[in-house]
Computed example of a mutant assay.
Amino acid sequence: MELVSSSKAFGGSQRVYRHDSAACACPMTFAIFLPPQIEDGPVPLLWYLSGLTCTHQNVMDKGEYRAAAAANGIAIICPDTSPRGEHVPDEPGNWQFGSGAGFYLDATQAPYDTNYRMESYIRDELPELVARHFPVDMTRQGIFGHSMGGHGAITLALKNPDRYASVSAFAPIAQPSTAGWSRPAFEKYLGPDERSWRAYDATLLIADGHRVKDLLIDQGTADGFLDEGLRPQLLEVACATAGIPLELQMREGYDHSYNFISTFMAQHIAWHAERLAKG
């Protein structure tokens, strides 16, 4: 791995690394905050998955997570949202597909299937790398994210309940297989057979029997994507039907931006910390 940057924050260390990814067949970049508690031994690891158009940098600059992570003794890792590079297929000008829009799935359709393997990268490759190089306790992992990243966090948690002890989301795309801003991407990445899309749709995964212990969601009522793209009520119905405890907090007047996310970031980290504490 190549260390891109490192700086001290809240007694810990905020770092950015670059490495060659076999899953995505290109160099990938990620950020990791290591709290001061690593001096006493391995700490829990919380994954943060960003939304459309973002890189690892957005939450680093705007998410305001380091104070809460240090206070709770949790490492936070922020991967990129897609493969990148001049040889990676893309649609310039389309912010809902390609670069910055990997949707945390493994593409099956050419030419995207070579590089767009974000599920394998997040689930398999990056954890193996992190476990080798950082003092984190891989038996205590949680995952959360925003928008597209909220979708990714919930689907990964549903499919890997033994991996992630906790899952939460800010304004997740609840049912991407039917949302207008994600359906076109799913078809390009996964093909026209919508049966294969079920593996990346939280509501349909729940309908197919996948479960998590509980789920926390924050959603702003002034979010411009609320009614057509996000639709948390669909996830609310799915969880109620399946008996999954869901805490859906509708935040009056908040939008889709990092002003919203940073306001409730510390609460989410504390919520995860309770579930990642040694039992």
Results as ranks from 00 to 15, higher is better:
2 E>M: 13
4 V>D: 09
5 S>M: 04
6 S>A: 14
7 S>Y: 15
8 K>H: 13
9 A>V: 12
11 G>I: 01
11 G>S: 02
14 Q>L: 10
17 Y>A: 04
17 Y>N: 11
17 Y>W: 14
19 H>L: 15
20 D>F: 13
23 A>W: 09
25 A>C: 14
32 I>M: 01
33 F>S: 04
33 F>N: 08
43 V>H: 03
44 P>D: 07
47 W>Y: 15
52 L>P: 03
54 C>Q: 09
55 T>G: 09
60 M>I: 15
60 M>H: 07
65 Y>S: 03
68 A>L: 04
70 A>N: 01
75 A>W: 03
76 I>R: 09
78 C>D: 11
79 P>D: 01
82 S>C: 07
87 H>Y: 12
89 P>I: 12
90 D>L: 12
91 E>R: 14
94 N>Q: 09
94 N>P: 04
95 W>T: 14
95 W>S: 14
95 W>A: 14
101 A>C: 11
107 A>L: 01
110 A>C: 10
111 P>W: 14
113 D>L: 01
114 T>F: 07
115 N>C: 10
117 R>S: 02
118 M>N: 06
120 S>Y: 06
123 R>H: 15
130 V>I: 15
132 R>M: 09
133 H>E: 14
135 P>G: 00
137 D>Y: 06
137 D>S: 10
140 R>M: 01
143 I>R: 04
143 I>M: 10
144 F>N: 00
146 H>V: 08
147 S>C: 05
150 G>C: 00
151 H>V: 03
152 G>A: 03
153 A>P: 08
158 L>H: 05
165 A>C: 01
165 A>Y: 00
166 S>E: 00
169 A>E: 06
171 A>L: 00
175 Q>W: 11
177 S>E: 08
178 T>V: 15
181 W>R: 11
182 S>K: 13
186 F>K: 08
190 L>G: 07
191 G>C: 10
192 P>C: 08
194 E>W: 02
200 Y>L: 00
203 T>C: 15
204 L>M: 09
206 I>D: 02
206 I>P: 02
207 A>V: 06
210 H>G: 01
211 R>E: 02
215 L>Y: 08
221 T>I: 07
222 A>Y: 02
227 D>K: 12
233 Q>W: 14
235 L>C: 03
237 V>I: 13
241 T>K: 15
241 T>E: 15
244 I>N: 04
247 E>Q: 15
250 M>G: 05
253 G>E: 08
253 G>N: 10
256 H>A: 08
258 Y>Q: 05
259 N>T: 12
260 F>Y: 10
261 I>L: 13
268 H>K: 02
270 A>T: 06
272 H>V: 00
272 H>N: 06
275 R>M: 00
275 R>L: 00
279 G>N: 11
